[in-house]
Design a protein around this nucleic acid. Structure first.
Length: 270
DNA sequence: CTTACGGCCTGTACGC
DNA sequence: TGCGTACAGGCCGTAA
């Protein structure tokens, strides 16, 4: 699942179940996901109470009474299933890898067919290093055109590659990078440094792009967009369709950048 | 240092 | 129906 908006929606679904709950059991159905689980994973999570449920970028972070943080990442195909306290056992699946049993009797099951997800326990103070994330895009104090311009300065990488770099801005993935670039009317292929401060246009383009990122993410959350299930986008997955921009007669192209699909309008995105 | 690419996994959709 | 191929929202290690 996964870009910031969907992770935030998942966090909101989990919050009422996890917040204040004590984890009474942790069942690991395999050695790990994309990495092996730390050997002390169960010991550090079991018998802890969740005092806060946060999100940073694409990570869901459960703050534990011990001061540790349980970090959970959905990778490409991860999802959580909440099973009620009583009867409905919810059909077990081969890809149910982690099951948290809660004091309420509810269970939270992590399912991930591709196992690109991750779970870890982060000690107090280690979060910045462990996650290595840039600013939260929806935090206006942390992320704006000036911050983006600084990240782009001196970069010869294509703009889209910079947006996908989690150290530049946390939580943007392939779909919303593509969408934001369309909203900002910027080509995904443009060299990133060209939107950094340049004589004359003081970060106008970087501000436009930063604003587009915020708007695309906020809208997705507000609409409860779940790309995995449905949702259509402005340009993502719309190769050969006409550009949705009013007054633009262009056509959406699909190209491949660093082996991922990019969709953009060659006419209005410069 | 930066950038590009393959690999990790499984599932699904499509063409033959 | 069956089979092969391409592709999928992420990230990381390696190589250039």
């Amino acid at each position: 699942m996964p870009e910031l908006p969907e992770v935030e929606l998942v966090r909101r679904e989990l919050e009422p179940v996890l917040l204040g709950a004590r984890i009474v059991s942790v069942t690991l159905n395999r050695d790990g996901l994309r990495r092996p689980f730390p050997s002390d994973f169960v010991d550090r999570v079991r018998r802890q109470t969740i005092v806060e449920l946060d999100r940073r970028g694409k990570y869901i972070l459960a703050r534990l009474t011990s001061g540790d943080t349980l970090s959970m990442h959905l990778g490409m195909s991860g999802s959580f299933r909440i099973e009620g306290r009583g009867s409905e056992a919810g059909a077990a699946d081969v890809h149910d890898h982690v099951v948290f049993g809660l004091s309420s009797g509810a269970r939270v099951v992590y399912n991930d067919p591709r196992r690109f997800g991750a779970m870890d326990v982060i000690a107090p103070g280690d979060e910045a290093t462990a996650l290595a994330l840039g600013p939260e895009p929806l935090d206006d104090a942390a992320f704006d055109g000036a911050v983006l311009a600084r990240a782009c300065a001196g970069s010869r990488a294509p703009l889209k590659a910079v947006l996908l770099d989690q150290r530049v801005v946390a939580g943007v993935g392939n779909i919303y990078a593509v969408e934001a670039l369309h909203v900002a009317r910027l080509s995904p292929r443009r060299k990133a440094s060209t939107i950094a401060t340049r004589g004359g246009q003081p970060r106008e383009l970087a501000t436009r792009l930063a604003d587009a990122i915020k708007s695309v993410l906020r809208t997705a959350i507000a609409r409860h967009e779940r790309p995995y299930r449905s949702s259509r986008f402005l340009v993502y997955d719309r190769a050969d369709e006409s550009c949705p921009r009013r007054g633009c007669a262009g056509t959406i192209r699909r190209i491949v950048q660093s082996s991922r699909s990019t969709f953009y309008c060659t006419t209005c995105q410069r």
